[in-house]
Design a protein around this nucleic acid. Structure first.
Length: 777
DNA sequence: TCCTCACGGGG
DNA sequence: GTGTACGTGAGGA
């Protein structure tokens, strides 16, 4: 960043942002653009990007706003124009407000909406990175052509590739990893560990001066693009900044965390928010300028996707890498829709005003049914294939052009589901346009994954990238029906589920027409049985014909050696839709809804239940299962013995619950709330969305002991009978379908009378209700 | 027997 | 800074 940039060259785009507030008054209101050159230089260039936003409302108010803006210190250029509003058929007349750059736009908009809160605003809250993405066609890590002017400012930036490349050139990023020697929530760290490539260092926290000097030297020497930390948001970086203050070294220059000159990191406060039907807790964040900070412990997306997935997420959404690692996938899909709208000149509402159009309640009930859920035939089944639609909901949106602006004109009933090749007489809407390339790339990635040999090093990266796409595709459906989404519309949401139900029913018809019986249907998947069929090729005609009749792609999840659909534990006559387990022909298990799949189940129980299932999975056919039951029971008995002897590590008995509300808001004293209170008394406050860990102990209910207390738990207090009960219940779940006799408290079969076989209900009820889960594929 | 609370899905 | 299902099962009163 010291040498002058050549007038024209190629580089990777690392980041785009507005200068920090203290430095806003740069001439021309430029953006900061970070580039990584081929010679390894990291360079910050300033770039001008004029932006326009819009206001609409009654003419008299707009005239007042016009006057107001003209009296501002640096008045923007004003005008009148017609623009397309996604939610109305007529173009909208708007006041255009041209600003020299993003910072002045943000300031003007802030002033304007304070004095004119009754006006509607469009394109008003778009981040600089998105503006740049729309104007220049660039995205994070894009390979770019760069032209630099005589004033050393960026004159032209243009992407040479697209986010849809399957094999983007690898970007030689420099990554410095930082972590304390112990979890700072449980102990006071004594040292900080640093890793860069194959070097690692360990610096004591005390005394602070040499620590800071060493870290500063490493930051200068390696100049990393990414600081990858453990607890960097909540502990490490705040602590380092404190030490900088205390030592009164050179201030920020003493520890160059930021690459941006003369700017400190920015903080975001901790908060809890609702996502995916549950409260999520996000700790305080420390964001850097000119380099990225990602706290592995506080970045949801990073935890799930890893670096490769996060980079892919940033590429396809255009979100800056540092944000991409931390945000939820819902933000990603929303960003992509905004970008599509920006590029097409569609107005982007500031706050969504549009709400669900009034409809009589009866009609709501009739239409808003969610995914189709069947009642499975309970018990053990063989010769069953699991068949799933591939990315069903996003595929429906693309194929049937379901989008907020097209939803009102959709055919009223789903009989219009047409086979492949059907003509679309409307241009694709905003949502399908946004999704189509994503779907295409995901399919291409998955196809390639299927062809890569197991040992191929590209597999891991492709898998992470494929997972990033899956997240985006899964959330786009929820966003369509979310009332606060900018481009959401409930009718579009309902159209998707209606088409989905129709497609699933057609698949069922196909299977039945070809002589199969259908054991179960679940939103985007079906389980079909044919006594004579064993090979994938046998079921292929069902797949092919379903593709023909629905126009959607479908895939064979696998053929089961056997699969068990469970009944309700409260009423043995009622099958439940989403509790089942089975073994594919290759011996791998598929397990849904039972204890081992639940996050709140103690590890000891999950592991024992899975170990028992692994034994049953060794049975070559369903008829052989009885011969394998004794070995499964043996596993159970040794687990119970270990429990009785104190041979189970206490951490394997820990239950985890996520707190859904503030502690005061709990009505009764649930086990989780009781444990959280113990922690509060010990000075550890948990916020909604954080998990509380606890053990069951002897005593009056709720007899729990919080796990993260300062004092180590006393093993003698463990409620052994209760854990035994939980374990027997989990064992029962998987053994009962095989008519295994009931178990005594020692895990031995009880010498009682034979039980009656399960009654099989003849009537299959199709339940409504929204799908409990969203099909990705 | 009622009420309250957390979980699922994906990989 | 962004998805407020809905059915099941467990725990407590």
């Amino acid at each position: 960043m010291t040498e002058a940039a050549p007038p024209a060259y190629q580089a990777w785009l690392l980041d785009v942002y507005a200068p920090p507030q203290a430095q806003e008054a740069l001439p021309g209101d430029p953006l900061c653009v970070w580039l990584l050159d081929d010679d390894g230089q990291r360079r910050m260039l300033l770039a001008c990007l004029p932006v326009t936003f819009y206001a609409a409302g009654p003419a008299a108010r707009l005239r007042q706003a016009w006057q107001f803006l003209q009296n501002e210190p640096n008045p923007p250029r004003l005008g009148r124009a017609e623009r397309r509003d996604l939610f109305s058929s007529q173009p909208l007349t708007v006041m255009t407000i041209d600003c020299p750059g993003c910072s002045s736009q943000a300031r003007l908009f802030w002033r304007l909406q304070q004095f004119f809160p009754d006006l509607e605003f469009y394109d008003a809250d778009i981040s600089p990175a998105l503006r740049a993405a729309a104007a220049w066609g660039v995205f994070p890590l894009a390979r770019c052509a760069v032209e630099v002017g005589a004033d050393d400012r960026l004159r032209r930036l243009a992407a040479l590739d697209t986010p849809w490349e399957l094999d983007p050139p690898p970007v030689p990023l420099r990554i410095l990893e930082l972590e304390p020697d112990v979890d700072p929530l449980h102990a006071e760290p004594q040292a900080i560990k640093v890793r860069f490539e194959r070097f690692s260092y360990r610096f004591p926290l005390n005394p602070a001066r040499p620590l800071l000097a060493n870290l500063a030297a490493l930051l200068r020497r390696h100049d990393p693009d990414l600081l990858l930390t453990d607890w960097g948001d909540t502990w490490l970086l705040p602590r380092l900044l404190e030490l900088v203050e205390q030592c009164d070294t050179d201030g920020l220059a003493g520890l160059p965390l930021n690459r941006h000159p003369r700017a400190g990191p920015s903080y975001r406060k901790e908060h809890s928010y609702f996502s995916y039907g549950q409260i999520v807790y996000k700790g305080q964040q420390v964001q850097l300028l000119g380099r990225w900070h990602v706290d592995k412990r506080n970045a949801l997306l990073y935890r799930d996707l890893g670096l490769e997935g996060v980079l892919e997420f940033a590429r396809v959404t255009s979100l800056p890498v540092q944000d991409a690692a931390r945000l939820s996938p819902g933000t990603g899909i929303s960003t992509m829709q905004i970008l599509t709208a920006l590029r097409q000149g569609i107005l982007i509402p500031w706050r969504k005003q549009q709400s669900e159009a009034f409809r009589p309640a009866s009609e709501m009930f009739a239409r808003d049914q969610g995914g189709l859920v069947y009642q499975p035939t309970p018990g053990v089944h063989t010769h069953v294939a699991g068949i799933d639609f591939v990315s069903m909901y996003p595929s429906l949106m693309v194929r049937f052009n379901i989008s907020p602006e097209t939803a009102g004109r959709l055919p009223p009933d789903p009989d219009h589901l047409q086979p492949i090749g059907a003509q679309q007489d409307e241009p694709p809407g905003l949502v399908p346009q946004t999704l189509a390339p994503l779907l295409e790339k995901r399919i291409a990635l998955k196809t390639r994954l299927g062809q890569l040999p197991r040992w191929d090093p590209r597999r891991a990266a492709d898998q992470a990238r494929s997972a990033a796409h899956k997240w985006l595709l899964v959330t786009c459906f929820g966003y369509l029906g979310y009332k606060n989404a900018r481009f959401g519309r409930i009718e579009a949401h309902e159209a998707v589920t209606a088409y989905g139900r129709e497609a699933l029913l057609r698949a069922k018809e196909v299977a039945e027409d070809l002589g199969c019986s259908v054991l179960h249907l679940y939103v985007d998947g079906l389980w079909v049985q044919h006594p004579g069929w064993r090979e994938p090729a046998d079921f292929q005609p069902v797949l092919d014909e379903t593709v023909r009749r629905t126009g959607l792609s479908i895939s064979l999840d696998g053929i089961y050696r056997w699969v068990v659909f469970l009944t309700s534990t409260l009423d043995r006559r009622i099958p439940v839709a989403n509790r089942y387990f089975g073994v594919f022909q290759d011996g791998s298990l598929k397990v849904r809804g039972i204890e081992a799949r639940r996050r709140d189940t103690p590890d000891w129980i999950s592991e024992t239940q899975m170990a028992m299932l692994e034994i049953l999975a060794q049975a070559p056919t369903a008829e052989d299962i009885p011969a394998y039951l004794p070995r499964a029971l043996q596993i159970l008995r040794s687990a119970l013995q270990a429990l009785a002897n104190g041979g189970v590590p206490l951490e394997k008995l820990v239950l985890k619950h996520r707190l859904s509300r503030a502690l005061e808001a709990y009505r009764g004293l649930s086990p989780a709330a009781a444990a959280a209170r113990q922690l509060l008394a010990a000075g550890k406050e948990l916020k909604p969305g954080q998990a509380v860990r606890f053990l069951y102990v002897l005593g009056r209910p709720p007899a729990v002991l919080a796990w993260d207390l300062p004092a180590a738990p006393d093993p003698r207090r463990i409620d052994i009978p209760r854990y035994r009960e939980l374990m027997l219940r989990a064992a029962h779940t998987i053994l009962e379908p095989f008519d295994a006799p009931p178990l005594g408290s020692d895990g031995l079969p009880l010498p009682t009378q034979r039980r009656l076989p399960l009654p099989h209900p003849q009537s299959r009820v199709m339940a409504g209700g929204r799908p409990p889960a969203l099909p990705g594929d």
